[in-house]
Design a protein around this nucleic acid. Structure first.
Lengths: 63, 63
DNA sequence: CCCATATGTAAAGCACACTTTACATATGGG
DNA sequence: CCCATATGTAAAGTGTGCTTTACATATGGG
């Protein structure tokens, strides 16, 4: 599953640690998501979508 | 996390087994999702949304 | 009455989502 | 140069998403 996390984060000038804090997950989790090592849980996907004020479908692409 | 699976399935006159087959998961998984025992993975949420032709946010509610 | 179909649930097992701790490397500012 | 910050990754542990097999119960049609 592809995602636009790295772009969305960079647009806002946030570090992975900043994003992790806002999402209440570890920095390693953010890194793993950005680099496609695994997909977020559905609840985390909702948290991410809410943070960026976008639909889940606008951030994640099942491809 | 709440979801509208049971309603959407009933509207179409499908059994849990029918839905499981269309989603390519086990009937127990459909039953567990409908009864809120756990949330689907993000890929499965996308499959469900595609099947019902609805956005993920129209089916699942993180509450 | 039977039986087929639908639903709920349990147990054991595997894979993955996420954690903490830890280390390596790059980069830019003093 | 140094050091702080940012990023990538690894290992071990926990919980959960999903599987297969299995059993119990309800319900409606013949």
């Amino acid at each position: 599953m592809k995602n636009r996390l790295k772009d969305l984060r960079a647009e806002r000038g946030w570090s992975q640690g900043d994003l992790a804090e806002k999402l209440a997950v570890s920095r390693q989790t953010v890194n793993a998501l950005e680099n496609g090592r695994y997909d977020p849980s559905l609840p985390l996907a909702f948290t991410i979508a809410r943070l960026f004020a976008l639909p889940i479908e606008a951030i994640f692409d099942p491809e």
